[in-house]
Amino acid sequence: MIHNITYRTFVYGTEDEEKVIDAISYLFSNPLPEKTITEDHFGNDIVILSDKITKKRLNRDFIEFLNENLSSDDKEIIKNELSRRMDEKGNLFLRFDKQEALDENLKLTYSGDAIHVRIKIASYPVSKDNAIEVAHKIFNFL
């Protein structure tokens, strides 16, 4: 039902990279993010941490984690915004607050300073409508 899950987050100069990895590890067990270093427009380093999770068990664990740990308000937001959060290729886009994750709270955010998660939903034929139908089966709150 899930092809893969990818995540990406930025570590700015004012943040501790280890703490950001701790925040990621709240969402994903034993994260091994790939590290890329780039610069902002002022020349300051920005570290990008990202990974692609393809193991079915880990993908199932993450979906179960969302089903169990999202607040009822966040579940309602996803339910109401599902069509806008899904693209034509079956990618579901979610953003989670980094600071809340560090405090072991799962909280959706609209901020760019977040852990960006893309869930590639398996549907055949590939379409937004088919992916939404599958999403209704895997998320217990839709």
Results as ranks from 00 to 15, higher is better:
2 I>Y: 08
2 I>G: 05
4 N>E: 13
5 I>Q: 03
7 Y>I: 04
9 T>E: 06
11 V>H: 05
11 V>D: 09
11 V>R: 07
12 Y>S: 09
12 Y>K: 12
13 G>C: 01
13 G>W: 11
15 E>H: 07
15 E>W: 06
17 E>H: 01
18 E>W: 04
18 E>I: 07
19 K>M: 10
19 K>A: 10
22 D>H: 11
22 D>S: 15
23 A>G: 08
23 A>E: 02
25 S>W: 05
25 S>P: 04
26 Y>K: 03
26 Y>Q: 04
29 S>C: 00
31 P>C: 03
31 P>I: 04
32 L>D: 14
33 P>S: 06
34 E>V: 11
34 E>L: 10
35 K>M: 07
35 K>E: 14
38 T>H: 03
39 E>G: 00
40 D>R: 02
41 H>E: 13
41 H>P: 00
42 F>K: 14
43 G>K: 01
47 V>F: 01
50 S>T: 06
51 D>S: 11
54 T>M: 07
55 K>W: 01
56 K>G: 09
57 R>D: 15
59 N>A: 08
60 R>W: 09
61 D>T: 10
61 D>W: 02
62 F>I: 08
65 F>P: 03
66 L>A: 08
67 N>T: 04
69 N>K: 13
72 S>Y: 08
72 S>I: 10
72 S>D: 15
72 S>E: 15
74 D>M: 07
75 K>W: 08
76 E>T: 14
78 I>E: 02
81 E>G: 00
81 E>T: 05
81 E>Y: 10
82 L>Q: 10
84 R>Y: 08
85 R>K: 15
88 E>D: 15
89 K>M: 11
89 K>V: 04
90 G>K: 08
91 N>S: 10
91 N>L: 09
94 L>G: 03
97 D>H: 11
98 K>D: 04
99 Q>L: 13
101 A>P: 02
102 L>W: 08
103 D>Q: 14
103 D>W: 12
107 K>P: 00
109 T>Y: 04
110 Y>E: 14
111 S>N: 14
111 S>P: 00
111 S>H: 04
111 S>G: 07
111 S>R: 12
112 G>S: 15
114 A>G: 06
114 A>V: 06
114 A>T: 06
115 I>K: 02
118 R>E: 13
119 I>H: 05
120 K>M: 04
126 V>Q: 08
127 S>G: 04
128 K>I: 09
132 I>G: 00
133 E>F: 00
139 F>L: 11
140 N>T: 13
140 N>F: 00
140 N>A: 09
141 F>T: 03
142 L>P: 09
142 L>S: 09
